[in-house]
């Protein structure tokens, strides 16, 4: 009959209305600043820069290759390459970002910078309480604010961070093995200069997939 559905709906909301006073389980929301729902492991908000060790400037994985800057759809990343080089995690000298800014008021959290980064240097953060009273400077994060330790990365995305670490470790091991082989080869070469040296290791050998 006409109007039946309305009555059913009204009964449903009346049930909710009364029930929300009786059973706390019905309440789907939490009292936010005091209570928090733990973030999901795959949650993502804005990117951050990963560093190894305890010193963010020394351990920063970013080599200022600027791929993320070029790929960023809303162009919220600004990178200035350094003049000098510093050793990266395998000890190879690399450039590092003299400036690395992300304007989070522009960022759309697409994660493309993370996908394109060959150095596992930029990852997605779960920190969402970024409110500030300065809408220009407050939302423009520089490299110091963006730098977060690898431990922090492990804390917020454990599964993903383990995979990354495993990959980096195998890369490092391969690099060390290569260095060792090269050293041996060099030693052998110097020992036996008359013999033709074995094929030089290709420069591109590494852990890249």
């Amino acid at each position: 009959m006409l109007g039946e559905g309305i009555l059913k709906g009204m009964a449903e909301t009346a049930k909710n209305f009364a029930g929300s006073f009786v059973s706390e389980d019905r309440l789907t929301t939490v009292e936010y600043p005091e209570q928090r729902i733990p973030t999901f492991e795959n949650a993502r908000v804005f990117p951050f820069l990963v560093y190894d060790g305890s010193d963010w400037a020394a351990g920063m994985r970013c080599v200022a290759c600027q791929i993320c800057e070029k790929e960023c759809p809303p162009k919220c990343i600004y990178i200035e390459k350094s003049q000098d080089k510093k050793p990266d995690f395998v000890g190879k000298p690399q450039f590092y970002p003299a400036r690395f800014d992300i304007d989070v008021s522009v960022c759309m959290s697409c994660q493309i910078c993370v996908e394109v980064c060959p150095f596992e240097a930029i990852k997605m953060d779960t920190e969402f309480e970024l409110a500030t009273d300065n809408r220009f400077g407050g939302l423009l994060l520089d490299r110091e604010e963006l730098a977060k330790s690898n431990e922090y990365y492990h804390r917020i995305h454990p599964t993903e961070a383990d995979e990354v670490d495993a990959r980096l470790n195998s890369e490092k091991a391969a690099a060390e093995a290569k260095a060792k082989a090269a050293a041996q080869a060099a030693a052998a070469k110097s020992a036996d200069a008359a013999k033709p040296s074995p094929a030089k290791p290709a420069p591109s050998t590494g852990g890249e997939d």
């Binding site: 909710n16 209305f17 929300s20 789907t28 009292e31």
Partner: peptide, 10 residues
């Protein structure tokens, strides 16, 4: 408040 209760919130 009433609308909140009908939608199971405070």
């Amino acid at each position: 408040k009433g609308l909140g209760r009908m939608q199971n919130r405070y």
